[in-house]
Amino acid sequence: MLVYAGYFLAFLGLVFLALALYIWRQGDADFVFDTANRSRLELEKETADEMVFTFNVPFRNRGSQQGTLMDVFVRPWIPKEQFSAAELTTKVTVASCPRSDGYWEATLFPNEKLEHDIAVIKLRFHSEGGDIRQAMDQIVDLPLNIVYQVVARAEWYLSKTMLELPMEEFHAAMQNGRGQK
């Protein structure tokens, strides 16, 4: 009897092992935001008390399964102790199906695609009743987290990629923006 129980347990072990191997080989979606190849910051809009900067970050699903980016948002790490001259709000959308409302529409991304999709990120600085040029002269290096929620074969998860926008790039974008006026 014990021998049969042993055979049964061995059989269960083999089944478990086979399943684990199959799942491991199947893999899952794996999104990567290629911050090293982001575009330069551009000044898209300027009023007396507001500036909107924009830049693009390529991303793709490099995994072995298709996956859904259920949510993507950009979280700036800029405390008031460091910069309080203007309030910063962010928006992100996908270039192939852009939205202007800041809502990230859950989108399925295939894994076979070799070319990148593009995340368009907008940074809006608003200086209430102030002079935005004067406020932005005080800008510092700006760390940003691109936070994204993935739903694929496995359970959903959150991940993030960090990048930093140097203050010189803000100044250059403002300079170029001024030149284009």
Binding site: L19, Y22, I23, Q66, R153, A154
Partner: peptide, 18 residues
């Protein structure tokens, strides 16, 4: 759910664990 989802066609709504 985690195991069965792995054997369903990827375009099916049952292909995710949820």
């Amino acid at each position: 759910a985690h195991v069965l989802a792995r054997f369903v066609h990827r375009d099916s709504s049952c292909s995710s664990a949820c």
